[in-house]
Computed example of a mutant assay.
Amino acid sequence: MAVFAFIHGAGDVGWYWHLVEADLRARGHLTVAPDLPCEDDAAGLPEYADAVAEAIGDLPRPVVVAQSLGAFTAPLVCERLPVSLLVLVAPMIPAPGEAPADFWAHTAYEQEARVGFDDTVALFYQDVPPDLAAAALRRGRCQSEARMAEPSPFRAWPDVPTRVLICRDDRLLPVAFQHRVTRTRLSLTPDVLPGGHTPALSHPHQLSDHLTAYAAEYGIA
Rank of each mutant, 00 (worst) to 15 (best):
M1S: 10
A2P: 08
A5M: 10
F6W: 10
F6Y: 12
G9N: 11
G9D: 12
D12S: 15
V13T: 15
V13H: 08
H18N: 13
H18C: 14
L24H: 04
L24M: 11
A26M: 04
G28F: 08
G28E: 02
T31N: 02
D35T: 06
P37Y: 11
C38A: 13
E39S: 12
D40Y: 05
D40N: 14
D41F: 03
A42S: 14
A43P: 05
A43W: 07
A43D: 10
L45D: 02
P46L: 09
E47R: 13
A49I: 11
A49L: 07
A51P: 09
A53Y: 01
A55F: 10
A55S: 15
I56Y: 07
V63M: 02
V64Q: 06
V64W: 01
A71Y: 04
A71N: 03
T73C: 11
A74M: 10
V77S: 05
V77D: 06
E79I: 03
R80E: 04
R80N: 03
L81F: 05
P82E: 07
V83C: 08
S84F: 06
L86K: 01
V89K: 06
I93K: 05
I93M: 11
I93Y: 07
P94Y: 03
P96W: 06
P96Y: 07
T107W: 02
T107Y: 06
A108E: 14
A108M: 09
Y109N: 04
E110Y: 08
Q111A: 12
R114V: 04
R114Y: 06
G116L: 10
F117Y: 15
D118M: 08
T120N: 07
T120L: 14
V121R: 15
V121E: 14
V121M: 09
A122M: 12
L123S: 12
Y125S: 11
Q126W: 13
P130Y: 11
P130I: 12
A135Y: 01
L137I: 15
L137P: 04
R139V: 08
C142Y: 10
E145Q: 12
E145S: 12
A146Y: 06
R147F: 02
M148W: 07
P151Q: 07
S152G: 08
S152C: 04
P153S: 10
P153N: 07
F154Y: 15
W157D: 12
P158V: 07
P158L: 04
V160Y: 11
V160R: 05
P161R: 09
R163M: 10
R163D: 13
R163N: 10
V164H: 06
L165M: 11
L165F: 07
I166G: 01
C167P: 04
C167L: 10
R168M: 08
R168F: 04
D170I: 03
R171M: 10
L172H: 11
P174A: 05
P174G: 08
V175I: 15
A176L: 12
F177R: 06
R180F: 05
V181Y: 03
V181I: 15
R183I: 07
R183S: 12
R185C: 08
V192F: 08
L193C: 09
P194T: 05
P194Q: 06
L201A: 09
L201P: 01
H203E: 13
P204G: 09
P204R: 09
H205W: 03
Q206W: 00
L207I: 09
L211Q: 03
T212F: 01
T212W: 02
E217R: 11
Y218S: 00
G219H: 01
G219N: 03
I220E: 00
I220D: 00
I220L: 08
I220Q: 01
A221C: 00
A221V: 00
A221W: 00
A221I: 00
